[in-house]
């Protein structure tokens, strides 16, 4: 007989529904606000999955103690250097003519079944989207709670069928100087690159988001698809991915190239290892008023990911 002990953060389905319904009902208003007309709206409906909705709440990843950050704050306080280094800039500059449709993403490298698909196709192949509520902890010592819609990364990687020698996954963001003022200025070496160890990428928490709060992911948050690895600092969650490549060498991620002393490959949230310029022991909660909360080891996902790092010196592998 199988006895399943519910975990303390699990929530009955009934309790989860109202909020998601609430947000779904606002979807039309949202599209209207974007200036999407009737015909386009119908077209959008046909691509519902891709646009990040409708998505089913996955109660396994919905800690009732987490209070989601307001949609407005999630979509107005962004680090997306392709569209400016100021928090307010991406919302303006990423919505000034940059198009994310159509969007092709490829899964390539050490795989038996390389893929090159339209993002809509990807979501369909993944069986649609699900919603998970994750903490997001930025290396700048602030945090949010985001209801992401999307799919588990491991499903996509499994579809490409990695070869046995594949050990790492490299993610690459789009490169389009015409649309991206940051890339024109060259404020970072572009395209932006991030990487994970293959076992990290295959972890149940690793997620590809195509939506937020049941709505298609806004440009400034990394449309049309981005990585979400909630136990790592936010900069690991690469936005607007065009290429996922399996390799046998540890990739050099952009921030590590830029400032290796401050940003490492792993970038696991760790309250005991400070950033050279500030402490990581605590964090400001976006939209949370005066308060500050203690930062949790692996951002509160110790149970799910600690085993990935057994025997490793996390002070060295920051």
């Amino acid at each position: 007989m199988l006895i399943r002990t519910p975990q303390d953060w699990e929530l009955p389905e009934s309790a989860a529904t109202p909020e998601s319904l609430y947000h779904l009902s606002k979807r039309r208003d949202f599209l209207k606000a974007l200036g999407v007309g009737g015909a386009a709206l119908a077209a959008r409906e046909a691509l519902a999955a891709t646009a990040g909705f409708p998505s089913k709440v996955n109660a396994d990843y919905r800690d009732p103690a987490l209070k989601p950050t307001a949609y407005e704050h999630i979509t107005s306080y962004n680090n997306f250097y392709e569209f400016g280094t100021d928090k307010a800039e991406p919302k303006v500059l990423a919505n000034r003519g940059w198009t994310t449709e159509p969007w092709t993403v490829e899964v390539t490298g050490l795989v038996n079944n390389p893929l090159k698909l339209d993002v809509n196709e990807v979501v369909k192949k993944m069986g649609g989207a699900e919603q998970r509520v994750y903490r997001l902890r930025c290396v700048e010592a602030w945090s949010m709670v985001v209801p992401w819609d999307g799919f588990q990364l491991s499903k996509l990687i499994a579809l490409a069928d990695p070869k046995s020698e594949a050990k790492f996954v490299t993610f690459t963001t789009f490169l389009d100087k015409k649309s991206s003022p940051g890339q024109r200025q060259g404020n970072l070496p572009y395209p932006y690159i991030e990487g994970l160890r293959l076992d990290e990428a295959m972890n149940e928490l690793s997620f590809i988001a195509t939506g937020i709060y049941g709505k298609p992911i806004p440009h400034q948050n990394g449309a049309p698809l981005r990585l979400v690895v909630p136990w790592k600092y936010g900069f690991k969650c690469i936005k607007s991915i065009v290429k996922i490549e399996l390799t046998d060498k540890q990739p050099l991620n952009t921030w590590q190239v830029l400032q290796a002393r401050e940003y490492g490959f792993y970038a696991n949230v760790n309250p005991q290892v400070d950033h050279p310029r500030w402490t990581q022991a605590s964090e400001r909660v976006i939209g949370g008023g005066l308060g500050r909360q203690k930062t949790l080891m692996f951002n509160g996902y110790e149970q799910q990911v600690a085993s990935l790092y057994t025997g490793m010196d996390l002070r060295k592998n920051y």
Partner: peptide
């Protein structure tokens, strides 16, 4: 009430 500012007003 700029949301980019009210997100983290003290910062």
């Amino acid at each position: 009430q700029n949301p980019s500012v009210t997100a983290d007003p003290f910062k």
